[in-house]
């Protein structure tokens, strides 16, 4: 969580240097989900994700330097500079790709789950998406196929209540519980507080045990909140689509603070050790940015590379 937070804060800080010239969606405030889910995944398990995927990528163990270089549009980027922040991939850790259209990567993840089934359920396919995706047709298409085909798919819905600047009011009926709606389709579902990393971890653990035991998919819904604007480095509580009060409530539920307090209070680790961890993390992040800055841009003729395999 700390790594993800520090990386995202550094991106926010440096974004105004105008060297990261691509749409960038930060997940500050939502780190507990990436962390709690990822700790349950084995290297062989695959992940697909969305436009807001830095946390998912890093959680799975994706290469940090290559991610930053990708945002800088450099050849050392994880997509060689062709994808930017919204198209991350690290095949070494089976992070199979994040894509930028809502719902787009979801059936791809289901296809990965089907390939696993064809090979005797060797891996689990973890599929991240937001609550906006549940409004897309492809959402029910994907879940339905995973159910009828008994696929080892872990659907992870990060409900942060906003699709760009649109709240839930025009998008979903009042009081809808997404996990309950989805459960009616015939899939096992769990719900947890997405800002409590231990809850996320334990819930995901249960889900994975279920997938392995019954060879069936599971749907998880985690409530959370993004602190910054939909796309970009700034806070945007002043522009009028959400209130400072609402933001403050969620900021008070900072997943990192909450977990730190828990660890210290229960004497699991002492505060010094956490400080040390921050120090080493910040060094790592600084190295990643240096790596990205130093890396070369692709050459102009590379425009026509890799259109066809």
């Amino acid at each position: 969580m700390i790594l993800i937070r520090e990386v995202e804060e550094s991106i926010a800080l440096k974004y105004s240097e105008n060297k990261m010239r691509c749409p960038t969606h930060l997940c500050i405030g939502q780190e507990a989900i990436s962390s709690g889910v990822s700790l349950n995944l084995r290297p062989i398990d695959t992940v697909v994700s969305t436009h807001r995927s830095h946390g998912h990528y890093l959680g799975k163990g994706g290469n940090l330097g290559k991610m930053i270089a990708e945002i800088y549009g450099k050849t050392d980027g994880c997509s060689k500079g062709y994808g930017g922040s919204m198209h991350l991939i690290d095949l070494d850790v089976n992070f199979m790709g994040s894509t930028a259209i809502v719902g787009n990567s979801m059936p791809v993840g289901v296809g990965l789950a089907l390939s696993s089934k064809l090979e005797n359920y060797k891996s689990i396919s973890c599929i991240y998406f937001g609550e906006g995706c549940t409004e897309e047709g492809i959402f029910s298409e994907s879940i339905n196929f995973a159910i009828v085909s008994n696929l080892p798919a872990l659907f992870v819905c990060e409900n942060n209540f906003y699709s760009v600047y649109s709240d839930l009011k025009p998008r979903q009926p009042k009081n809808r519980k997404i996990h309950k709606m989805v459960s009616a389709m015939g899939i096992k579902t769990f719900y947890a507080d997405g800002n409590k990393v231990l809850d996320v971890y334990k819930t995901t653990n249960k889900a994975i045990k279920y997938i392995k035991k019954y060879k069936k998919p599971v749907f998880l819904e985690f409530a959370t909140y993004r602190w910054r604007e939909h796309c970009g480095p700034n806070y945007d509580n002043s522009i009028g689509y959400r209130t400072e009060k609402e933001f403050a409530k969620w900021k008070n539920k900072d997943p990192i603070n909450e977990f730190k307090n828990y660890l210290v209070k229960n004497k699991i680790i002492n505060a010094n050790l956490i400080d040390k961890f921050y120090l080493s993390t910040n060094r790592k992040v600084a190295r990643a940015f240096k790596f990205a800055e130093k890396s070369n841009f692709p050459s102009e003729k590379d425009l026509f590379k890799n259109i066809y395999a």
Partner: peptide, 11 residues
């Protein structure tokens, strides 16, 4: 979705 499933399989 089934086109996406095909993409996932092909990966």
């Amino acid at each position: 979705a089934m086109t996406g499933v095909g993409i996932g399989l092909s990966l």
